[in-house]
């Protein structure tokens, strides 16, 4: 299956939040979306999901325009993990995961024993069964993220959109979450995720898309696309890309390191402020 965004444009009043963005996501791919704060990452995701109406352009799934699809059909195709936030009410973890089954229920039905079983399976797959009866609000950021991933597993979509899945997570939890995402992609899920770390693109993504001020300024394999010059331009700070050789391993990984000294001119980026906050 293939999910395509063609010339997507979104306008808020006179400001364009998205200028003709195009991308494609296939099954089993992990696309990493990199861009500074307020560059339009969340806007792009919301436009794919139909949460924000496109001023121009379209979103196609296997060539079919999804804008006319009912919400349940979109939900059966595309899962969404929003930026981390805490819901108003104190749901248990299993309740949160069962909500992933909503798109598969008949119109006025409530989840059956089978739906609850599938939700439990999803939690088991991510090794978080023990959290089932814990209160979602009281879990750590990493645990909450895994619960949301389990919810998406229960939802069983073809594609998954993740808005900064590693936000607020410590280093260890970041790795655990990213590993799970990688495993899901190996199982055939197409994943597109926003990140603030170019390293995530080097280590986990099959493709990287760079977005700045609502424009896509580059896309392709991480090695060829996320080069020093391009990243310098993306974040407006000098960046070095180093190759790290891991002891006792044949593998080498690319890592992104900021320059030792950042010129004063780089601070200009702080002065525009954020033009369109997600």
């Amino acid at each position: 299956m293939i999910l395509e965004v063609k010339e997507a444009q979104i306008r808020y009043g006179n400001t364009k939040a998205l200028h003709g963005a195009s991308l494609s996501l296939g099954s089993g791919e992990i696309v990493c979306l990199l861009g500074p704060n307020g560059s339009g990452k969340s806007t792009l995701f919301k436009s794919i999901l139909g949460l924000l109406p496109l001023t121009k352009g379209q979103v196609l799934c296997n060539g079919q325009n999804i804008s006319s699809w009912p919400r349940t059909k979109i939900a059966q195709t595309i899962g969404y993990i929003p930026q981390s936030h805490i819901p108003t009410f104190q749901f248990t973890a299993i309740s949160m995961v069962v909500m992933g089954r909503t798109a598969h229920l008949r119109r006025y039905a409530t989840p059956s024993a089978k739906d609850i079983y599938l939700a439990e399976q999803a939690m088991e797959k991510l090794c978080i069964s023990h959290l089932k009866d814990a209160l979602y609000q009281e879990l750590s950021g990493g645990q909450r993220q895994l619960i949301l991933i389990a919810r998406s597993l229960a939802q069983n979509p073809k594609f998954l959109i993740m808005d900064e899945p590693t936000n607020n997570l410590d280093f260890g939890n970041q790795v655990l979450v990213l590993q799970q995402i990688k495993a899901l992609a190996e199982g055939g899920l197409g994943v597109i995720m926003a990140s603030h770390y170019p390293d995530h693109a080097f280590q986990y993504a099959t493709k990287v898309i760079l977005i700045k001020k609502g424009k896509i300024i580059g896309s392709g394999t991480p090695e060829h696309t996320a080069t020093e010059t391009v990243l310098n331009n993306l974040y407006d700070i000098p960046i070095h890309i180093a190759t790290a050789y891991i002891k006792d391993s044949k593998n080498a990984v690319k890592v992104c390191v900021p320059a030792a000294k950042v010129p004063l001119s780089s601070y200009a980026r702080m002065q525009h402020g954020v033009s369109y906050v997600s």
């Binding site: 919301k46 999901l49 139909g50 949460l51 009912p70 919400r71 349940t72 979109i74 939900a75 059966q76 595309i78 899962g79 969404y80 929003p82 936030h85 819901p87 108003t88 009410f89 909500m99 992933g100 909503t102 798109a103 229920l105 006025y108 039905a109 409530t110 989840p111 939802q155």
Partner: peptide, 23 residues
């Protein structure tokens, strides 16, 4: 009563409820 499950999902955020398939 017949929309009780949908209302439950809607008590998350608006975008989440939509992305889970609720009109």
């Amino acid at each position: 009563s017949i929309s009780r499950w949908q209302i439950n999902v809607m008590s998350l955020s608006e975008d989440e409820a939509k992305s889970l398939g609720v009109e």
